[in-house]
Design a protein around this nucleic acid. Structure first.
Lengths: 228, 228
DNA sequence: GAAATAGTGTCTCTTAGACACTATTTC
DNA sequence: GAAATAGTGTCTAAGAGACACTATTTC
């Protein structure tokens, strides 16, 4: 394992890796992502928020700072997804970019005022090619991790109705879920607890508000899934 | 989104990101990882195989080359896991390292001759701290992805017995599985097909050999899992 | 025949999904 | 009362795990 010196034989200049954040929120039954305006010289008008990594910085720390700076608030969750070092173009010119997922709830995102704008993930403006791939990768990873941990709760305010929670799952999974079955599974997982409050939203019976409150009761895993 | 120039305000020198591979194989009911000797000056005698990324290189391409060079053969699978840019020490001195998983079957790994050596993942020599974290991360990710796709098959030769397959799953999951249930699930997933061959391994009834042959019959997804 | 390993049939229990219902609100 | 939304009870079907069995080999 030779300890390579940082020689620059190659034609391309050495550029520090970039950190890119995909900031997501639910909005009117759509997933929306926060995009920032690119500099005037850039080919694409909109870009994922990014910055270059300097030596001595940790990627997770810088990703949190970048998300907070773009958003004006701290997101409910910031998590690394993957590195992208294909040959595709990135505004930084870096050979390597690290994609981060950040989640924020609808209420907080609605209060957002800043340079950046929200776009539905199904209806996006052109993005630099590598960022396009990063966004796809983040969404795929988000769906895959949905059943691994309680990430969906980060897209909701502290208290929420069970219908809201189910809508988040339906949004992320892209399919309808069975109401009674969804609630039974939720009950069995001991992830939420009811509050004393009820919310009346227009006509129809008011819904009880719940809060995320995981109990330690972890049932033994069952079965082996052979995913295609 | 300022397009930063590669200024070097910081005290630390700019070092290109590293690419590190975790090459795994099954061996006598243990998972083993291939470690290379570090250079004389390095603190740890053994290291994950790594190299520095040069501009214009794609990380996936270079990871495959690195795995092939270390192993002498092409691994059955090479897949990116995550970037590690915590402050921990890496032999390259890089601020950022990208971890790759590589899998190879027992037969091929047994034929390996080279500078590197195999170590059981439960009984490892000291590694550079960041590499230690990378190895843990790769193993965690491998377990999590087991039910997402048929990665376990990459740890087996082209034909194998169902008992071998089950042992791989038990190795990766760290728990015993129920034989009849395992086979029923496997049958339902249409992932393997029997060959005409049978293998007699010492005493006991010979086992039929199977090969990996996924059929497109994908049943509709069921259920929502609320992972803790 | 004993020991060892491969492979299967049946029962039970859990749970996802369907269906149909009750409950509580606004209009 | 009609419409709309929240929440529940029961049945069914799939599948995971236990148990016990049969099958085929070596010694």
């Amino acid at each position: 394992m030779p300890a390579r010196t940082a020689s620059t034989r190659s034609s391309a200049p050495r550029v520090a890796p970039s950190i890119d954040v995909v900031i997501l929120a639910p909005r009117e039954r759509k997933l929306v992502v926060l995009l920032a305006r690119g500099p005037a010289k850039s080919r694409e008008r909109w870009q994922l928020p990014w910055r270059s990594l300097k030596p001595d910085e940790t990627i997770d720390g810088e990703a949190v700072k970048l998300a907070r700076k773009t958003l004006g608030t701290a997101p409910a969750l910031v998590e690394q997804v993957a590195a992208f070092g294909d040959g595709r173009r990135h505004p930084s010119g870096a050979a390597l970019s690290v994609a981060f997922l950040a989640l924020i709830d609808a209420d907080t995102s609605a209060g957002f005022k800043g340079d950046a704008s929200w776009f539905a993930v199904n209806d996006l403006p052109p993005l630099p090619p590598r960022q396009r791939g990063m966004l796809e990768g983040v969404l795929t990873s988000l769906r895959a991790r949905l059943d691994q941990g309680p990430i969906a709760f980060h897209l909701l305010p502290p208290t929420f109705t069970l219908t809201q929670l189910q809508e988040i799952y339906e949004l992320l999974l892209g399919r309808r879920l069975h109401k009674a079955s969804f609630r039974r599974s939720l009950h069995a997982a001991w992830l939420v607890e009811p509050t004393e409050e009820w919310r009346s939203e227009g006509r129809g019976r008011p819904a009880q508000l719940f809060r995320y409150a995981p109990k330690k009761r972890r049932g033994g895993r069952r079965g082996v899934r052979f995913g295609g």
